[in-house]
C-alpha cells in the first residue's frame, strides 16, 4: 500500500505545482496593448455603431489596416493618431490577439 501512497503524494505534488504555476499569472504584454483598444472598441472588442468590431477579424487584414492607418494610407478619423504610436511588432501582436477573439 505504501507505494500507492507515494504515487498519490507525487501526483498531488505535481498537480499542486501546476495549479500554482497557473495562478502565478504573468500579465502578457499584449493585454496591456489591447487595453488601449478596449476603451473605445469595448472590452470584448465588440464595437458599437460607428466604432467597428475588431474581435475575430482576419489577422492579416488587421495588420494591413493598422499599418495603413500608421502611414496615412487608410482613411481615418482618429485611428491614424493612435496607430502611429505602435511598432510593427506590436501591431502584429495586437492583430493576432484580436483575430483570436470571438
Amino acid at each position: 500500500m505504501r507505494i500507492y501512497r507515494i504515487v498519490l503524494l507525487i501526483l498531488l505534488l505535481v498537480s499542486n505545482l501546476f495549479a500554482h504555476t497557473l495562478f502565478a499569472r504573468e500579465v502578457e504584454r499584449v493585454k496591456i496593448l489591447a487595453g488601449n483598444c478596449s476603451t473605445c472598441h469595448g472590452p470584448q472588442g465588440q464595437g458599437y455603431e460607428l466604432i467597428p468590431k475588431i474581435a475575430g477579424l482576419d489577422k492579416d487584414e488587421l495588420i494591413k489596416l493598422l499599418e495603413g492607418f500608421k502611414v496615412g494610407k487608410e482613411t481615418a478619423t482618429i485611428m491614424d493618431r493612435h496607430a502611429s504610436g505602435y511598432t510593427t511588432q506590436e501591431i502584429k501582436q495586437l492583430a493576432d490577439y484580436f483575430s483570436k477573439m470571438e
Partner: peptide, 16 residues
C-alpha cells in the same frame, strides 16, 4: 462621424 464616435466612446469606456 466624430460626434457619433463620441457616443460610441462613451458606451465603450463605461462598459470597459
Amino acid at each position: 462621424d466624430e460626434s457619433e464616435n463620441a457616443r460610441d466612446w462613451y458606451r465603450g469606456v463605461v462598459a470597459d
